[in-house]
Computed example of a mutant assay.
Amino acid sequence: MTAREVAAHLLNSCRSLGQFDAYMFGSALSAIGEDIDILVVGPSGDALSQLKRELQAAGEFLPLHILYMLPSEALRTDFVAKEECVPLERLIFAAER
């Protein structure tokens, strides 16, 4: 699957992603890796528990590596910028242009 296809699959399969910021990063963006790195930034609690269940089901046959961060952690580490994370939505819309 391409990065765009993975992003579309996750966004369509995981309704709870709307409550989070979700990104792809790493080698999957260049189509050279064997795993797919996903960053999810958002609150903990019930919403995160639901999202984890959805991602597990959606990614059953995908080599997903998922990193979860609270918004404060993402800001403090500047992970999104440092790792050149791309929002899942942007992956879908960029390919449509």
Rank of each mutant, 00 (worst) to 15 (best):
Q50W: 00
I36K: 12
R53V: 02
A31G: 15
L55Q: 06
G45R: 00
A58N: 06
I32L: 13
S27Q: 03
E34M: 10
K52M: 09
E54S: 01
A22Y: 03
S49V: 15
Y23A: 12
A57Y: 02
R53K: 13
D37I: 03
S30N: 10
A22T: 05
E54L: 01
L55I: 14
A47F: 06
E60V: 09
I38W: 07
P43S: 09
E60D: 08
I36R: 13
S27F: 11
D21P: 01
G59A: 07
G26C: 09
L55C: 06
R53A: 11
I32N: 12
S49E: 15
A47M: 07
L29A: 11
P43T: 13
S49L: 12
V41H: 10
A31E: 13
G59H: 09
E60N: 05
Q56A: 14
D35W: 02
Q56C: 04
Y23W: 13
P43N: 12
D35C: 03
G42H: 04
F25D: 05
L39R: 11
R53L: 10
A31K: 14
E34R: 13
I38R: 04
S30K: 14
Q50Y: 02
R53E: 08
E54R: 00
S27K: 02
G59L: 00
G45E: 00
E34P: 08
E60H: 11
A57I: 07
A22G: 07
E34C: 12
D35P: 07
G26S: 12
S49H: 14
G42R: 09
Q50E: 13
R53Y: 01
E54F: 01
G45A: 03
L51E: 00
G45N: 07
G45M: 08
G59R: 01
L29N: 08
A31H: 15
G26K: 10
L29Q: 08
A22E: 00
A57T: 08
G59V: 01
D35G: 04
P43Q: 13
M24H: 06
D37R: 09
D21M: 01
E54W: 04
S44E: 15
R53H: 05
V41R: 08
D46M: 00
V41Q: 12
P43M: 09
F25L: 11
I36Y: 06
D35Y: 00
M24S: 10
V40F: 01
L29R: 08
S49C: 04
Y23G: 02
A31L: 08
L39G: 07
D37Q: 13
D46K: 14
L55R: 02
E60W: 11
G26D: 06
S44M: 08
S49F: 15
A22W: 09
D35I: 04
D46F: 12
D37V: 01
L48M: 12
S30Y: 10
F25M: 05
M24T: 03
G33E: 09
E34V: 09
I36A: 09
E34T: 15
G26E: 05
Q50N: 11
G59N: 06
S30H: 14
G42T: 06
G26A: 10
A47C: 08
I38H: 08
V40E: 07
E54G: 05
E60A: 15
G59W: 02
L39C: 11
E34L: 13
I38P: 02
E60C: 10
P43F: 03
A57F: 00
L39A: 12
G33N: 11
G59M: 04
E54D: 01
I38A: 02
I32V: 13
S30A: 14
P43E: 15
L29V: 03
Q50C: 01
E60R: 15
